[in-house]
């Protein structure tokens, strides 16, 4: 469904993403992990059109490289941001309907907006300004607005960051439900390995913008190279 082919992104001399290739299949929950600064968020910004790059990204067989973000959104790729983004000037209902009005094929679909608000459990906050939501609420709002665009792929950027155990559990349930009930393919960047091993079917580990390992999450997390990139060399001598 989504193919990233030999993609490279340089910021000056720094290669934030280095000749990276992988493929996400329809219906999957696909995990991406790696140490801080590995290029995960940059990769998201490349896929969703925020930065230019070298290489090719194909979505549903169509080359989307070089397309501006709003076109990629309309094509069916929705995303959330690591630092929660909301529209403090708008109410929850209005903010979610932005996704429907501008991002969904066919324009504003009020019934769908209502369904989404119920789905992400923001019904009681419907008329509240989005700036007043708590952290979990803001995250749900971002997911809701993204869902309102009727995406084929939802890309989540560290959705659990800053959440406590209960909130993580409720977000995990929500993500599984989006994938299972709404049949939306999901790509998730996350640091909590437990979240990744429990949720994802395939896991990609990147470091310094390059692929370290890809495959079944349980096998990937035990790969010596992956352990090395997170914890350092196992035979490093203690002084």
């Amino acid at each position: 469904m989504l193919r990233v082919i030999h993609v490279t992104k340089k910021f000056g001399e720094l290669k934030a993403v280095n000749d990276l290739s992988f493929e996400v299949k329809a219906g999957q929950i696909f995990g991406i992990a790696g140490p801080n600064g590995a290029g995960k968020s940059t990769l998201y910004n490349l896929i969703t059109g925020f930065y230019s790059f070298n290489g090719t990204i194909e979505f549903d067989g169509r080359n989307i490289s070089g397309m501006p973000p709003f076109r990629i959104a309309k094509a069916g790729i929705a995303r959330t941001f690591q630092i929660p983004q909301t529209f403090p000037s708008l109410t929850v209902q209005k903010a979610i309907s932005v996704g429907s009005r501008f991002g969904a094929a066919g324009g504003l679909d009020s019934a769908h907006v209502n369904d989404v608000i119920q789905f992400v459990d923001l019904d009681n906050e419907r008329t509240q300004n989005t700036g007043l939501l708590n952290l979990l609420g803001k995250k749900k709002l971002m997911i809701g607005a993204a869902l309102a665009t009727k995406p084929k792929i939802l890309m989540l950027d560290e959705p659990m960051a800053g959440c406590n155990a209960t909130e993580i559990r409720s977000l995990m349930d929500l993500i599984a439900k989006i994938n299972h009930d709404l049949k939306i393919t999901i790509i998730i960047i996350e640091h909590f390995m437990k979240v990744l091993t429990e949720l994802t079917e395939e896991l990609l580990i990147i470091e310094s913008g390059a692929k370290i390992c890809q495959g079944d999450p349980l096998e990937v997390v035990n790969d010596p190279q992956v352990i090395a990139c997170y914890l350092g060399e196992p035979d490093a001598k203690r002084k």
């Binding site: 925020f50 501006p68 973000p69 959104a73 983004q85 529209f87 708008l90 932005v98 607005a145 993204a146």
Partner: peptide, 19 residues
């Protein structure tokens, strides 16, 4: 609404399909 959304968070607005 598009004006306000772009003012509040341009990246979020663009990711939802606003040019």
């Amino acid at each position: 609404v598009a004006f306000l959304a772009l003012k509040d968070s341009q990246d979020f607005a663009m990711s939802l399909g606003i040019s």
